[in-house]
Amino acid sequence: MKNSISTPNNIVRTAIRRSFPQILLTAVLIIMIIGLSVSSEFFFTWKNFRNILDQCSVYLLLSLGMTFVIASGGIDLSVGSIAGMSGVIMAVLMKAGMPVLPAVLLGILSGVLTGIINGALISYLKLFPFITTLATMTITRGIALVLTGGVSIYGFSQSFKWWGTGTIGPINPPIAISLLFTIIAAIIMSRTLWGKYSLAIGGNAEALRRSGVNVKGYRISIYAVSSLCAAIAGLIMTARLNSAAPLAGSGYEMDAIAAVVLGGGSLNGGSGAILGTFIACFTLSVLRNGLTMLAIPTYYQQLITGVIILLAIIIAEARNRREKESE
């Protein structure tokens, strides 16, 4: 056969070649787990593993939405602030006497609306995602500050706190929600038109438009999904701490962006993998957990995390470049 085409062998080989960032990351994760298990007897226990997943859940939710945004060639700086604002709106409504469920739903809706506004500004006014979401980041943070008067709102009913501290069998709602969302996101990314178009918009939006696809609509829905994830992260944050702080979630967008890029996403758009994002989030959480266990002071932890992120990105980038030149 002169056309060797899409044989199963080809599919697998190409997939492995393209998964280099994720494979590298997994190797780093395994080495870290082995090292930490040797140095601390408390590390390799179910209790600690559950703790890591719990710590990871909020970042993971933000990163899942961010994966689609970055795949589409955009960026969403507003997710941390949206998480904060949604939590504050839930808190304000509940304090005003609204039952838990409608308060939570309205809080999430406020977040999704912000995402739709982000997407509409970017699609219809052709504004840069960076500057658009920087503005909405500031606006949503401002709304949270205005609603709270700058003071945390705390003390909620048991049924609300369940979302952060309850138990579902061996795990808790934050872990359950974040893992469920990971699975759904992975299926959407690889099996649906929506996932494929998120990647295609980042690859060549004009080509997709010429093929008759409603690119504007898809782009708006991508930012809406990102903010939906952020609002649910806001629910978990607020319920876990039993407190809605006006500055909750500040800077979380940066962790989410770092996780997506570590997991194989490119800020040029066109690439992004849910499994990679998940492994990256988990690795960063293991790293933080391990550094704490090794009793390394918090200030150093920040420094070490930053250096590791930088190294990982340099290695992945160098490899990308080499592959391009060899072809």
Partner: peptide, 28 residues
């Protein structure tokens, strides 16, 4: 068109079906 309107980050077959993907009960 001269610029070919291809999505460089996607595969050969994905480009051929761009905008006209086959689906099975909603799944690609």
């Amino acid at each position: 068109y001269q610029d070919l309107s291809l999505v460089n980050t996607q595969t050969v077959w994905e480009n051929i079906f761009l905008g006209h993907e086959y689906r099975n009960f909603g799944w690609l």
